[in-house]
Design a protein around this nucleic acid. Structure first.
Length: 577
RNA sequence: CGGGAAGUGGCCUAGUUCGGCUAAGGCGCCUGCUUUGGGAGCAGGAGAUCGGGAGUUCGAAUCUCCCCUUCCCGACCA
């Protein structure tokens, strides 16, 4: 490719509405342009990177036996109704009608479609299978953000494994786990797996792959000493034991004006937060429910969703709260409440002599024994872990890290195969549902994650594995015949060696060409100009370090070819190169 | 959906408080000359329904109302 013909509209300044580093740089570098919120045009450079990321993913999934499909993106409502997700997916799914009035949806994922295809499997002899596709998914995200990190239309590789039994699924799952780690290595993304909430699908094992970034949207609790890491929606910690203390009589006492945990701590006759019960009134699928955590703890909503299976979940509004308990927030409690379900966090097991609202404005109870005084319907882990709490495995203080979720693998089980009749005859002659696994990785998001973790003050620093070009030949003086001839020869040599190279033959000043090559982030640069050629040299610059050395013209192409091959060969596909 | 901010040539901004001549500057783009190893200099030029609509006014980028869009925080998000 000749840069003079390349459509790469670089900008000196990022658009004012870009915030995340990857967003700014991908726009400035001429990789992407926004059409509207959550929808981006991939310009030639962006599409090249995107395709290279997809190819790395494709390679690794092929390597574990994956077979690639192309599936419809527009789905009939009926298939989503069959799985029950037409209703449970809510507003995330784009829905439309065709000319005949048939309800239709744009695919947000493809479990239903693959399960339908899988209904043609009929014998254990055909298994295992790993099927995947890399296609556009549509999600009507309430809030698209941060450039390519969260969009409404994006390419995703999702694969599905089909096995006879749970042991087979374990193998497919582990294969994907390893494939994903290789993918992130090749992309140069520092990634680690975390325990995750399996969400509405209710799978068993669920691992999210994360990379630390301030532009991320997930918080991860991670142990600096051992390998414990979990999404905050799933994370637990070891709390210091609390001495049981003396059981006391339940006693209502006046607390005029006290409406908060903090105020009750200060109040004469109150109690420290650790000895208080925090009662939250939530509406779970229409059922008003009391959720109780320790006074100094935060409720994690996802944990409540996972524990209850609720689909729609929200805090009760003030009117509902008063109607349910007869008091306003600030004086609420679950003592002796029997007409609403009560869900209590595990950290409150065995606690006595606690203080909580009395469901009467300006009154609290003290001397509360949780088991004695609350009608606990469900004990479960509900509280959100905080930084500094002890690792549940080794006791080291946990850190909370902001991360981008770059992949998710989990065990689906037999739900979909039962629904869609994907059953097989087992070796024993029984008809059994196929055991499925589901494995997703967003292509554009991973592209953004690479950008997010590979840039400096000059611009992007792509790993060779996904760089828009592997090398650039920067011509200092296009009207100098010797210079242009030397550059053309290098260009030919590199192309013939299979290097993805761009010849910067633009009639532009040196500074412009240097700045563009650095902004775009091309890993290797050969600078050809009269100054070096006078001594038979060209300059060789490595983008990641910006180290520049003179190399003889005759060996310049070889230098680049070796560098490209070396970067692609090692598993750490170009990190630091 | 709740809270906040913002829409002015392709990009970044000024002007809006307190209405007033032809909407200003930088980058980019085009032409010419000069320059030529780190985003050049000089001269000239093109390019704007000031997000849209309605209203107030002699007069609206500026004031009022309605709407649209975008960004940020939260909610939400296999």
């Amino acid at each position: 490719m000749r840069w003079s013909q390349l459509f790469a509209p670089t900008l000196r300044e990022a658009p004012g509405d870009a915030e995340a580093a990857s967003h700014k740089l991908l726009v400035r570098g001429g990789f992407i342009r926004q059409l509207h919120a959550g929808h981006y045009s991939m310009l030639p450079l962006g599409w090249k990177v995107h395709q290279k990321v997809a190819q790395v993913v494709r390679d690794e999934i092929n390597a574990i036996g994956g077979q690639e499909f192309l599936l419809p993106t527009m789905h009939p409502a009926s298939i989503w109704q069959a799985s029950g997700r037409w209703d449970t997916m809510g507003e995330i799914m784009f829905r439309l009608e065709d000319r005949r009035g048939n309800a239709t949806a744009l695919g947000i994922t493809h479990e239903e479609i693959f399960a339908t295809v899988a209904s043609e499997l009929n014998s254990y002899k055909q298994l295992p299978q790993v099927w995947y596709h890399i296609q556009t998914k549509f999600r009507d995200e309430a809030r698209a953000k941060a450039g390519l990190l969260r969009v409404r239309e994006f390419h995703m590789k999702d694969s599905y494994s089909f096995d006879v039994d749970a042991a087979g699924l374990d193998v497919a799952f582990d294969n994907h786990d390893r494939a994903y780690r290789r993918i992130f290595e090749r992309l140069g993304i520092p990634a680690f797996g975390v325990e995750a909430s399996s969400g509405a699908m209710g799978g068993t094992d669920s691992v999210e792959f994360m990379t630390p970034s301030p532009a991320g949207e997930d918080d991860v609790a991670r142990c600096p000493s051992c390998d414990y890491a979990a999404n905050i929606e799933k994370a637990t910690s070891a709390l210091p034991p609390i001495e049981a203390g003396e059981t006391a009589e339940l006693e209502k006492f006046p607390t005029p004006g006290v409406r908060t945990i903090a105020a009750l701590e200060e109040f004469d006759g109150g109690a420290p937060a650790i000895d208080q019960l925090k009662t939250l009134v939530m509406v779970l699928d229409g059922t008003t429910t009391l959720v109780v955590v320790r006074g100094d703890h935060q409720l994690n909503l996802q944990k409540l969703i996972d524990a209850t299976g609720a689909i729609e979940i929200r805090p009760a509004n003030p009117e509902e709260t008063v109607a349910a308990l007869g008091a306003n927030p600030g004086s609420l409690g679950a003592v002796a409440v029997t007409d609403h379900p009560v869900i209590v966090d595990l950290s409150l097991e065995g606690r006595v002599n606690m203080t909580t609202g009395a469901n009467e404005d300006d009154f609290h109870y003290r001397g509360v024994s949780v088991e004695r005084d609350l009608q606990v319907g469900q004990w479960t882990d509900l509280r959100e872990v905080s930084a500094g709490e002890a690792c549940p495995r080794c006791g080291t203080p946990l850190e909370i890290v902001r991360c981008i979720e770059i992949g998710h693998i989990f065990k689906l089980g037999t739900g979909f195969s039962e629904t869609f009749g994907a059953t097989i005859s087992s070796q024993e002659g029984d008809i059994v549902p196929i055991v499925m696994g589901s494995y997703g990785i967003g292509i554009g998001r991973n592209m953004a994650a690479v950008a997010e973790t590979h840039h400096d003050d000059k611009g992007l620093v792509w790993p060779v594995s996904v760089a828009p070009f592997e090398a650039v030949i920067t011509v200092m003086k296009i009207d100098d015949e010797a210079t242009m001839n030397a550059a053309e020869l290098l260009y030919d040599d590199l192309r013939h060696a299979g290097v993805d190279v761009v010849l910067d033959d633009r009639d532009a000043r040196a500074g412009v060409k240097f700045a563009d090559s650095e902004l775009v982030g091309i890993p290797f640069r050969l600078t050809v100009g009269p100054r070096g050629l006078k001594d038979g040299n060209v300059e060789y610059t490595v983008r990641s370090t910006m180290e520049t050395v003179d190399v003889p013209l005759e060996s310049a192409a070889t230098t680049v070819i070796h560098a490209v091959h070396a970067a692609k060969a090692v598993p750490h596909g170009g990190i630091g190169v």
